[in-house]
């Protein structure tokens, strides 16, 4: 029952009950953002360290606001200001942070498994805020929270995820969470950005063309294309990518009439999504952002508000 973990490292091993507990708690936290006084004392005296080895203003800010609205002391450590750049190993950095007795560490790192490495090493709760191409559980959960505002999260729902699946932690975390809830997931990527065998291991349907993925979809999730991947022979040009895989108004018409359009941000307007769609009536992209704070409050609260002394 409920959510009783020390860490939130991914959605892969979360049960449906755990996912729903997190979403229901987040639902309750939404209300706090509407108060004139947007602060509750739940995590007063707790320290939340945002340890970001990769720059990410959005995610870090979202966690910071979440922590502060729970009255926790939020400390931001980014790779550019810490000793990380001086050749110190991750383990050394973490040992140093542990010595300052934080309660929760939020970690963003460019390599897979960094959060797991930290979580196995220390007693504080660890929230994975993105490890390489592996997982970004709070993003997936806030996406689910956003979907739940418009659609029922249950079998019968169809979600299309389009973009660079191979290198996307957002895609992976969404795939695990959605399929755990029995939701149909279609993925579509250029063949160079599609992990071999994903169909079998993840229980998703792989579509060759975006049109196939969009057909009747209830939710359309566009992924950010890393423009620097062009240099690595993964796609010929931005123009070519936009032409074949970009979401525009015509393509969106293939989806169900009340489909919602999502994007984890930051967007490359005119590449994976046209401005017309990003700012259009189907778009819930800004809802994702505000739900991010509520969802992260729920995560911090459930991890930090429990008796593990």
């Amino acid at each position: 029952m409920g959510f009783r973990r020390k860490d939130l490292l991914g959605t892969r091993d979360l049960s449906a009950v755990e996912i729903r507990t997190l979403l229901e708690s987040a639902e309750s936290f939404k209300e706090i953002a509407e108060r004139p006084l947007k602060k509750v004392p739940a995590l007063r005296g707790k320290t939340v360290v945002n340890l970001f080895f990769e720059p990410s203003t959005r995610t870090r800010t979202s966690f910071e606001i979440a922590a502060k609205r729970l009255s926790a002391d939020a400390v931001n450590i980014s790779a550019s200001t810490s000793s990380v750049v001086k050749g110190e190993s991750l383990v050394d950095t973490v040992d140093n942070i542990q010595a300052m007795a934080p309660d929760i560490i939020v970690v963003r790192h460019k390599f897979v498994g960094a959060a797991h490495l930290i979580a196995e090493r220390i007693g504080a709760s660890v929230v994975n805020a993105g490890d390489g191409a592996n997982e970004h559980p709070t993003q997936a959960l806030l996406d689910l929270l956003t979907i739940s505002e418009h659609k029922k999260l249950e079998p019968g729902l169809t979600v299309a995820i389009i973009g660079d699946i191979a290198h996307s932690r957002v895609a992976r975390s969404n795939i695990w969470a959605l399929t755990t809830l029995g939701i149909t997931v279609r993925v579509c990527a250029p063949p160079t950005m599609l992990p071999r065998g994903l169909e079998e291991i993840a229980g998703v349907r792989v579509c060759r063309r975006p049109e196939e993925a969009l057909e009747g979809a209830d939710v359309v999730m566009m992924l950010r294309i890393q423009l620097e991947r062009q240099d690595r022979l993964l796609f010929p040009s931005v123009r070519d990518y936009a032409r074949i895989f970009g979401l525009n108004r015509q393509r969106l018409e293939l989806a169900c009439p009340d489909a919602i359009v999502m994007h984890p941000g930051p967007m490359n307007r005119g590449v994976e999504i046209t401005s017309e769609v990003a700012d259009g009536k189907h778009s819930v992209i800004l809802n994702q952002v505000s739900n991010g704070v509520a969802l992260r409050m729920a995560v911090l609260f459930l991890l930090g508000g429990q008796g593990r002394e």
């Binding site: 209300e31 739940a42 609260f301 008796g307 002394e309």
Partner: peptide, 23 residues
């Protein structure tokens, strides 16, 4: 009113708190 977030025994609670909606 849900008072979970205002409890003074959160860190000592042996059960895991369930948050409900304040309106």
């Amino acid at each position: 009113l849900d008072i979970t977030l205002y409890r003074d025994d959160l860190s000592r609670a042996t059960h895991h708190p369930v948050l409900r909606k304040t309106e």
